[in-house]
């Protein structure tokens, strides 16, 4: 294992990304984040596809049974908070829940294992937990942001959604008031819409990044404390990992449902 001169260097090293392109510029890529998120997305898809391909309405096998439990869980959440008819809602919610859950779970893999393995193939920086990278969470959140508008367009039309930017959240009856309220509404509505993906991305990123940071700190604590701290924090993270995946999915469903509602 690589040795470090100071704790600061160790932390720096573990919070650094494997980057292609000029560091600091927008046109650079976090290869580790992309690699592991795509890998985990593929894991998600192939497991679920394996179950879906042989899905039977008779007695389900072990895999199908497990997958159906997940699908049923997601579906019941959708039924609770979504009242529209867009058939994209199921795939979106399922993808977010399972994918985010998988991307969170890799955080529980021993912290130094993958960076250590990577050091043998000449990769200096590797973070395997995509959700502790703001780019990953923001990417999904922006996807949801686009979907919010898409859902709105499907039900209200482009004009209907555009009109809402001037008529909500404050509505008036008479024309003069409407005109007065329009710029105020535009401001509030814009903020409201931007806050949605922003809060989604920051919530998940914040939770996971803080978790990583704590794991790093545990890793540089004295060896006789590491197991106790590591165990306690892992158990706690186990809770956060599932909870954050669920919260991301639940909020997405609520946002998409709101997008179709009339104000």
């Amino acid at each position: 294992m690589a040795t470090y001169d100071s704790p600061g260097e160790y932390i720096d090293h573990h919070l650094g990304h494997w980057v292609i392109g000029e560091k600091g510029s927008f046109w650079s890529l976090h290869v580790d984040t992309m690699l592991f998120s795509v890998l985990l997305g593929a894991v998600f898809f192939f497991i679920f596809y394996a179950a879906a391909r042989k899905a039977t309405s008779g007695t389900p096998g072990g895999l199908q049974n497990f997958i159906e439990t997940v699908v049923d869980f997601v579906d019941s959440n959708i039924k609770d908070s979504y009242h529209g008819t867009n058939r994209l809602i199921g795939p979106i919610a399922l993808t977010i829940f399972v994918w985010v859950l998988l991307m969170n779970i890799v955080k529980l893999i021993p912290y130094d294992l993958f960076p250590w393995l990577a050091s043998f193939v000449g990769v200096d920086y590797l973070r395997i937990n995509p959700t502790s990278d703001i780019n990953a969470t923001a990417g999904v959140a922006l996807g949801v942001f686009v979907m919010i508008f898409w859902f709105g367009f499907k039900v209200k039309g482009v004009g209907g959604v555009g009109k809402e930017f001037f008529t909500s959240p404050f509505s008036a009856q008479s024309l003069p008031f409407k005109i007065v309220l329009a710029p105020i509404n535009l401001f509030f509505k814009t903020v409201e819409e931007i806050v949605k993906p922003f809060s989604l991305a920051m919530r998940l990123f914040g939770n996971m990044y803080a978790g990583s940071l704590i794991f790093t700190l545990i890793a540089i604590s004295p060896w006789y404390m590491q197991w106790a701290l590591g165990l306690g924090w892992s158990l706690f993270k186990l809770l956060v990992i599932v909870l954050q995946a669920f919260v991301f999915m639940a909020l997405t469903i609520v946002y998409l449902s709101m997008a179709e509602e009339d104000h």
Binding site: G21, G24, S25, F26, W27, S28, L29, H30, T33, M34, S37, V38, G41, F44, F45, L88, P91, I92, T95, W99, P130, D133, I134, N135, A136, A138, G139, V140, L142, G143, V146
Partner: peptide
């Protein structure tokens, strides 16, 4: 630091959905 990863992630998300 935000960079092109965000776009890659959006594409991955879209494909997965």
């Amino acid at each position: 630091n935000l960079n092109a990863t965000i776009l890659g992630q959006m594409v991955s998300f879209a494909i997965l959905v």
